[in-house]
């Protein structure tokens, strides 16, 4: 009887986890679409950071739900490869620091990610036009990387704490 209860509880937790992660993936899509018009000002970075702080490795699930929806919405082209790895870099960067709940630290992580965003996307350019094209592409977009860095820093500094709180509250309520 107790084993049956445990099994049911485990299934229930898995179901709630699946639902929550799908929803969190959808939140990323909505935020990306909503702010697509503002060059390099986005909420995806801070959300993925908070997902990583709260769910650890599980943050890959909503992130790749988001990536797959992006591919379905906009189709697969050479730049899709960039989307496949760029958010994984952020999660991997955030994982070892996830137990430190300092908004200043996370603002710096998000800022640094914004700053290297162009360099990360230049990796894709490397396969299109070789080294010279990749370097030219990176340097050409550096000004936008500075904007991305500053925007990520400010957004994360102010939103990290409330978002973390909401997600931890939800995690606790849903017993995940």
């Amino acid at each position: 009887m107790s084993s049956l209860c445990q099994h049911t509880n485990k299934k229930g937790t898995q179901l709630r986890r699946m639902m929550l992660f799908s929803m969190l993936g959808a939140v990323l899509v909505i935020m990306q679409v909503a702010l697509a018009g503002l060059a390099n000002i986005e909420l995806v970075s801070v959300l993925i950071i908070v997902y990583t702080c709260v769910f650890g490795w599980y943050a890959f699930i909503p992130t790749y739900v988001f990536v797959v929806i992006q591919l379905v919405l906009y189709g697969f082209n050479i730049w899709s490869y960039f989307y496949i790895y760029c958010w994984a870099v952020l999660i991997i960067l955030a994982l070892p620091l996830r137990h430190i709940k300092s908004p200043v630290l996370w603002a710096m992580v998000a800022g640094a990610f914004g700053l290297i965003f162009g360099a990360l996307s230049a990796v894709t350019s490397l396969f299109i036009g070789g080294w010279s094209f990749a370097v030219a592409y990176w340097i050409n977009g550096l000004l936008f990387d500075f904007v991305h860095c500053a925007a990520n820093f400010v957004i994360t500094l102010f939103l990290y704490k409330p978002l973390l709180l909401i997600l931890e509250y939800g995690k606790e309520k849903l017993r995940i």
Partner: peptide, 30 residues
């Protein structure tokens, strides 16, 4: 939200500053 891990934060702040300085240098040079 206390600064328990001050050392890690300071190290990261230095890395972050170094990244910014490098990027600005490349931009100005280019």
């Amino acid at each position: 939200f206390y600064m328990k891990n001050k050392k890690i934060i300071i190290v990261f702040a230095l890395v972050f500053a170094l990244l910014i300085v490098s990027a600005v240098t490349v931009y100005v040079f280019a």
